[in-house]
Design a protein around this nucleic acid. Structure first.
Lengths: 131, 131
DNA sequence: ATCAATTGCGTTATGCTATAACGTGTGCGA
DNA sequence: TCGCACACGTTATAGCATAACGCAATTGAT
């Protein structure tokens, strides 16, 4: 998945997420971008869809929010399964990848002949500071 | 978490989920129970909250739906981490538990001094029949 | 027995999340 | 230059979830 040149809206949404400390809901992003001409949710959702497709943004299913991918390198290759810890206190999200879990899940899904398309692993709790 | 006697509403919601082939949204449950006197979403959500607390119902975060726990035994002890495969074709949900994944996640979260409260693992794709 | 606390219930209203459906403009290759 | 793909803007609507109020039943300590 090569990363093409981003459009204006995509760039605005990406910047908003990148400069945010933690995850943001689509509507929070919308509010942040009103000064830049954003008026409707669809403008945000359409940009988010593309950014997810490019692997630059992740959706956190358990909190209906979006976060910039923390991988420093480009997004030209698949990262495999992505997992997150999400702190209920400060909202901090940590992204991580683990080959062992990926292998194990692969084994288990293969055993039931299940064809995986998207894997969600989200761990909610409290980080060191907020424990 | 001992399972107390269920209230009327809790029983109705539990029965609806148990007799369903797959997961149901709160509003779908509401519609199914209108004949039994249900009028408002809160009646469903309140019952669902308790049933989740008792470990009899799981929430599928990635599709905003609820499913009856498939464990045959009672719910008096914690099952640890619960994972699901969710078929995008037929909606079939399979629940499973894996000690290896649980261990690995525990190791990883411990490494960042993260205190886990709830773990979500949901695998979306296609089951054998729908592949 | 009585009071207070707890729990469940019902209702209305509201808020948050996401998409449908329509039309416009722009770039680009056949 | 025609047709197609894509991004965009707008309005409206659908879908998911909770706030806030009040009432009724239960329980359990005084």
């Amino acid at each position: 998945m090569a990363t093409p040149q981003l459009t204006k809206n995509q760039t605005l949404v990406m910047d908003a997420l990148s400069h945010s400390e933690g995850p943001m809901s689509a509507y929070t992003i919308l509010d942040k971008l009103r000064d830049h001409g954003f008026r409707a949710p669809l403008q945000v959702y359409r940009a988010l869809d593309k950014l997810q497709e490019y692997g630059m943004v992740h959706r956190l299913e358990s909190i209906n929010a979006f976060v910039a991918c923390s991988c420093p390198h480009d997004h030209e290759h698949d990262h495999g399964v992505t997992a997150f810890t999400i702190c209920e206190g400060c909202g901090q999200v940590t992204e991580f990848h683990d080959e062992a879990i990926e292998q194990r899940l692969s084994t288990l899904t293969r055993a039931q002949n299940f064809k995986t398309e998207k894997t969600t692993i989200e761990i909610r709790g409290h980080c060191q500071s907020c424990a």
